[in-house]
Design a binder for these strands. Structure first.
Length: 533
RNA sequence: GGGCCGGUAGCUCAACGGCAGAGCAGCUGACUCUUAAUCAGCUGGUUGAGAGUUCGAAUCUCUCCCGGCUCACCA
């Protein structure tokens, strides 16, 4: 995790960290990497005592260009209008489509411990006139802007094109208009039916003031204007923007040449791949943000995103793998190392920073968090599958003392995550089911194991064990009685009930089942191949 | 076509000019009540290919191959 601390060490003076997002739809997991990086940088700067402001912008004057979330009859009317002016399709009391979707990601950020000092909404900022100086510069230097587009991005705008998008006073659309003239106070706009393929303009035209919220700058100029307006010094960007000739290059050139300001330091970051592929909501469970956050709590999600350097792609495939348990294991290892406990294997450079920045609360007591007891995720994933098991009791026994409130909260979170993992991503081998009939795998039982199972059945019938620990004691005492090694005794039980040679604590497993069923199964398994022998 | 990232053990990654390593998985073994835990040990590599620089290359240079993402319309 040298990357964030190195970055923090390389700057001086107060910093303004910024990012902004178009609230066009739902957030998927991969898109959380940017915000986590943003937040990690902010924490690293503050850790060095650098005065830092974290801003997050909502580009809600951008035109509606995705019709997937619109009702069919709304498409014709709403496509191309600013997101801030589109009614909330969900009808759950938000002022607009933009407010609704922005709220979704603001909530997501808060859930990940990302707390910008301020959110700003472009639909609030334009009417104040704060952007007007930038609009004037852009229009006065329209030829320069067109030249930058040609030079930097190889994009050829018509000679009449001006870098401003008027919100059509007739139909309210911003995506459909083009400005062809500027007289120093007013612009001449046309709302064209065929300006873009995804929205249809109304055909209106006329002279209008581009100031005070009547118009918005095109994306690349708006970005540069934000940098100037807020004095942004650091802004990470996804690699889709950071490519040569891409948005970042254009906006940086516009900032320098048109607005005459220095663009912020870029921190380009790669994306999250699922099984070597870009994650997308249409490609199954691995990509579903909802399922992901159900299974991976905030601190582990932060760790996933901030551990690798931003410029390397993250390979993460939760589906049918142990990737999720391993993420927990790594978190626990970092905690142990930070607390000064001995850990197996190597530690990444700056492991304490990685742990600290992974914590949900930026003001958390790192030492206390590191020292807190956390139950092994893999173990929990088993425990939660045993009916009636006292998970809290088991975990406290493992710790050796009562859990603190904080530890109990962590446990609750992990138990929920473990259940969700078993229900969704977990590979079959992590799932444990008591077979309805004697498993075929029980054929592998050796004669001494079958004799043991028969003895266990007899002993259990003679004196029924009352609970998990009763069964557990009986399993051991019968094993000792017939002279069978404990390991082989346990695997005999697992084979008989689960069809596998290992499993969760056998006593509690048997105690959770109906006693007659247990006896019958033990005898069935004991009798198997008895004839053939 | 341009750009970026990557290719190291079965998997995820580290090492970034000085003996190729860790975790997990796998395999052995130990364990009379933490039994998918814990402990001890083992296996596993022509570092994508080729050339170059160097006393020395996974590491630097060049060429190529492969994978992925991304841009070239808008935001």
């Amino acid at each position: 995790m040298d990357w964030a601390d190195e970055l923090a060490a390389s700057v001086s003076g107060p910093q303004v960290v910024n990012d902004s997002k178009t609230p066009s739809g739902t957030v998927h997991v991969g898109s959380l990497r940017g915000p986590v990086i943003l937040d990690t940088i902010t924490r690293a700067l503050r850790a060095r005592g650098i005065e830092t402001t974290l801003l997050y912008g909502v580009d809600d004057l951008d035109p509606m260009d995705a019709q997937a979330l619109l009702t069919p009859d709304a498409v014709e009317h709403e496509m191309g209008r600013p997101l801030a002016h589109v009614p909330d399709q969900a009808g759950d009391c938000h002022a607009s489509y933009a407010r609704h979707h922005a709220q979704v990601f603001i909530d997501t950020f808060a859930g990940l411990g990302i707390l910008p000092d301020r959110y700003y909404w472009m639909s609030d900022i334009y009417p104040t006139g704060a952007i007007d100086p930038y609009i004037r510069l852009a229009l006065d230097r329209a030829e320069l802007v067109r030249e930058i587009y040609r030079r930097v991005a190889n994009v050829q705008h018509p000679a009449e094109w001006h870098p401003i998008g008027v919100i059509c006073p007739t139909c309210g659309k911003v995506g459909t208009t083009i400005v062809t003239r500027w007289d120093g106070e007013l612009v001449f706009y046309e709302c064209r039916a065929d300006h873009v393929t995804w929205a249809r303009g109304c055909g209106a035209s006329g002279w209008i003031s581009p100031f005070g919220g009547n118009a918005k700058l095109p994306w690349n100029l708006e970005w540069a204007a934000q940098w100037g307006l807020f004095g942004v010094t650091i802004e990470p960007g996804g690699k889709d923007l950071s490519t040569a000739g891409g948005s970042r290059d254009r906006s940086a050139a516009i900032a320098r040449e048109v607005f005459e300001i220095d663009p912020p330091l870029n921190v380009p970051y790669e994306f999250l791949n699922i099984g070597g592929k870009k994650m997308s909501t249409s490609k199954g469970r691995g990509a579903s943000a909802h399922a992901f956050t159900e299974v991976v709590p905030p601190e582990q999600t932060r760790l996933l995103f901030l551990r690798p350097r931003p410029n390397s792609a993250i390979e993460f495939d939760p589906e049918g793998t142990d990737a999720v348990p391993r993420l927990f294991d790594e978190f626990d290892k970092l905690a142990a190392a930070t607390a000064g406990r001995e850990v197996k294997g190597e530690l990444p450079a700056g492991y304490e920073s990685i742990f600290r920045y992974s914590l949900l609360d930026p003001a958390a007591d790192v030492a206390a968090e590191a020292a807190a007891f956390r139950a092994d995720f893999g173990h929990l994933a088993l425990l939660v599958q045993v009916p009636g098991v006292d998970v809290d009791g088991r975990v406290e026994a493992e710790k050796g003392s009562a859990l603190t409130d904080r530890e109990r909260a962590v446990l609750v979170e992990r138990v929920r995550a473990a259940r969700a993992w078993i229900a969704t991503y977990a590979p079959e081998r992590a799932r444990m089911t008591v077979r309805d009939a004697l498993p075929i795998e029980a054929g592998a039982l050796e004669p001494d194991q079958r004799a043991y199972l028969a003895a266990l059945a007899a002993a259990a019938e003679a004196s029924p064990p009352v609970a998990g620990d009763g069964w557990q004691a009986l399993i051991f005492s019968v094993a000792a009685g017939v002279g069978l090694a404990n390991g082989r005794a346990f695997s005999a039980i697992y084979l008989a009930f689960l069809g596998r040679s290992n499993g969760p604590r056998a006593g509690w497993l048997l105690a959770s089942l109906e006693p007659p069923f247990v006896l019958e199964r033990l005898r069935d398994a004991a009798d198997i191949k008895e004839v053939a022998r």
